[in-house]
Design a protein around this nucleic acid. Sequence first.
DNA 1: GCACGCTATGTAACCGGTTACGGTTTGCCG
DNA 2: CGGCAAACCGTAACCGGTTACATAGCGTGC
Lengths: 333, 333
Amino acid sequence: MTEATIRDVAARARVSVASVSRALNGLNNVRGDTRDRILAAAEELGYVPHAGARSLSLARAHSIGVVLPDLHGEFFSECVRGMDREASRRGYLLLLSNMHDESDRAMKALRAMRGRVDGLLVMAPHVAPELLKEALSPALPAVLINCRQATPTRPSLRIDNHAGAEAVVRHLVASGRKRIVHLAGPEGNVDARERAEGYCRSLEALLPGTAPVILPGDFNESAGDAAARRILAGEIACDAVFAANDMMALGCLHRLREAGIAIPETIAIAGFDDVPLARYLGLTTVQVRIAELGTRAVARLLDQLEGKMQGNEEVLLTPELVLRGTTATNSQI
Amino acid sequence: MTEATIRDVAARARVSVASVSRALNGLNNVRGDTRDRILAAAEELGYVPHAGARSLSLARAHSIGVVLPDLHGEFFSECVRGMDREASRRGYLLLLSNMHDESDRAMKALRAMRGRVDGLLVMAPHVAPELLKEALSPALPAVLINCRQATPTRPSLRIDNHAGAEAVVRHLVASGRKRIVHLAGPEGNVDARERAEGYCRSLEALLPGTAPVILPGDFNESAGDAAARRILAGEIACDAVFAANDMMALGCLHRLREAGIAIPETIAIAGFDDVPLARYLGLTTVQVRIAELGTRAVARLLDQLEGKMQGNEEVLLTPELVLRGTTATNSQI
DNA sequence: GCACGCTATGTAACCGGTTACGGTTTGCCG
DNA sequence: CGGCAAACCGTAACCGGTTACATAGCGTGC
């Protein structure tokens, strides 16, 4: 039970493969009745063109490779969702692969894309610029998402983490908080670093003289939990926690609430990302339009592929502060 | 700046393409020094084999197509995560595509996979069996996930929705609930239907004489919200709500709590799926091991591809009841 | 020294499409 | 009805790999 090929269709319609190809691709240089015969034959045989063969001769795979870090949860799904929307709209499929932490596996994943895709979407906030550059073939167009780059040699999209962090700190200060600690993301992750930087700078600007306090974290809720325990143990004094992402903020929130701490009265909490969960739990956070990030990355890549050339600039997406219960100002209570 | 081909490598190493192919694929019939020359040439040229060409001649694409409904959130990401784990472990990539609601687009998506993948993973709880069967080429192996099938002609994986629903009802009845209503999922969705069936059967068995009450829903939180409003309006009298999925349960929970209803004292709430959110909000639910579902589906497909033949049986994954605060029994308060 | 077998290598066909190029029909005109 | 252009169609090369088969080179035993 093997699939019909174009030659089978040609034989059945008593024409050459060239005519079949022309007819099925809608070229106009095929006589009406011939075309009908071909279409009928194709229909009868249940013929579906072999995309692999097609892409080999066209040098176009009509699919794009997506290499993401091993992330889970809403961030991943929203991102892929946004990518898929734009890709399928423009007739492309997504070939997915994880950017594993071990760099050799990551390299392998990138190599495996060769000859299958027309371009690459790479999100690798944790990968060193030179490694990344080395792993990407210069012949394959790529759009970088949240990546560090030594010099901007590729088009890229980034979240404006500085602006987001600043908005959070500004809000916390405006609502009277004096001792704001930052719960950071993993070392080596650009997003995490920039959010921490934004925190430090804003603190310096808005509460000059206050020393920044940064707790280590890893973007998982357990890090939030651990931070909360340290706060509860009296190890750290604060009236606000700004976590580098929502999951950590939620872990912290959960633990503090459970311990009977009044949120936001005693301690305010803010996160970053605005995962759907955040809305439910009333978490103040910075809204990153994740799906849009995906959509725009695909659009950028396909524009480049289709010759609507663009430069290698880095596009910054400005996130928006979303105020919710975990930082409600006193006047709102 | 075009990529090097195998012929370039052959020319540089002053051998034939056959030898290059043999050397790079680790066949043993190449002399040591020739192999070294070839590897060196490949290295110098930065040669990476063209996967498309390779798969054409091998008739093996080393990737599998994943066709999922337009779902978002944790369910999607966990599922893909599980699939990717097993696939990448065994050297396969995932080609992703959405199973759109309009059936012609869904058909197109399936056709587009031809010649790109070695097999298909299809999750289509909302598609009619005959349509699905028609859309799947008999020549392409496929594993169905949560699909309806007239007669089991394909290997498939399913959640044991009956058992899950029964566990919920049994628990609610055991904790003294008498008037349990069911908030159903979309019509035409197998999972939704089976959960409703399980609810009805268990009610009949455990509270004979009690008429089942089923509210319409669509798996979105807004449906839960709507149901809650009807309950608040006094339109429906109940002491427990069993929602067909977590999102609806959460929508319902949120609205009822906001209206001051004591949960679980006045009304108990249970869901289905155990999305991460559920744990945070203390929602009693049925844990479906989503990532495992994905992993096993891939394993099943690859086993089939690699000749470890199996039948077309349907494998049922039995979910587990997770008790949390929204149904805490009175004695626990 | 020769026939033989074994190993290393090259040649060319093939996977299933697309398409340049050339040949045959057809239509139209004088 | 002859001639010419345009429309239609077929042959074969090509995309970049793999591999069956042929061939060359080598050592071995007699």
